[in-house]
Design a protein around this nucleic acid. Structure first.
Lengths: 141, 141
DNA sequence: GGTTGACCTAAAGTTAGGTTAAGGTTGTAT
DNA sequence: ATACAACCTTAACCTAACTTTAGGTCAACC
């Protein structure tokens, strides 16, 4: 299957200018062109873009994503590098999720705090923190 | 308790220049100064900074964090705004965690993929994807 | 009293990851 | 054959969140 840049943009929800930017930065080295110089994306390019999105979600920089695709093209001699890259990214992602979970705990506390403050019309109510302490025993603020 | 900017920097692992930048941007409106114009942080400022870190972790921009602190200073009339801000941030954070979890699933697949490819010395082994399919039944790539 | 390290400001510089603008080409429907 | 949307390139611009630089002050010890 072949897709135009506009079709890919709609399918993956990535702007056309971003797709061209990725191409310019060398993240999509395999893209074909028509005789009229127009980009033609195929399934492989779509898979690449999905991987870019995945790695970007986990906080990897474009230059490192580019490095990874470079290794893929170099072939089997880089398997170990690629393996270690994913092991490292797994660690980082687990750490990020854990940080976000901690932040979510604090936010949930604040949601309860302001829900009760809203009921009472004030944050100055002396019983507010004590009441919350009963619900969130493991937290101190 | 009173702390210097350097002490706070060490305690919270935020660089001195970043602390001054936050102050300049109006995120720490309550900070005291000595007669010699030197910043003196107290427990309240530390709590503010921890909240800034928390909200930043969840992707909130500094200008919005500043808005929130502004509401805190305005008093009880803004309780509902603050409540809704945290409800919204809770949604966003849950969505982020879910996206990261999806990315982690793909990364775990790749870890297994490259672990086996490493064992075999090639990614071209015909049985590789089939073997992985047995482990990751719910995924298609 | 002088050196040293931590503090101060204002302003300029940096980085990543794009977006926008200007000017031109392609391809397709009428 | 002409209009028009969708494509192309290069280069400049943008934003957030810092960091760096330059030049100066403060406080404590020797």
């Amino acid at each position: 299957m072949a897709y135009s840049i506009g079709e890919v943009s709609n399918m993956l929800n990535i702007s056309v200018s971003t797709l061209r930017y990725y191409d310019k930065e060398g993240l999509l080295p395999l893209i074909n062109r028509t005789s009229g110089n127009i980009r033609v994306f195929d399934e492989t390019d779509i898979e690449c873009l999905k991987m870019i999105e995945c790695l970007k979600t986990t906080g990897m920089q474009l230059k490192d994503i580019k490095l990874f695709f470079g290794w893929c093209e170099e072939g089997d001699s880089t398997i170990n590098k690629r393996y270690e890259l994913f092991l490292e990214q797994k660690e980082k992602t687990e750490k990020q999720i854990s940080l976000l979970q901690d932040a979510l705990d604090r936010i949930n506390y604040k949601c309860e705090y302001y829900r009760i403050a809203k009921e009472r019309g004030t944050t100055n109510d002396p019983g507010l923190k004590e009441e919350l302490a009963m619900k969130f025993l493991s937290q101190n603020k």
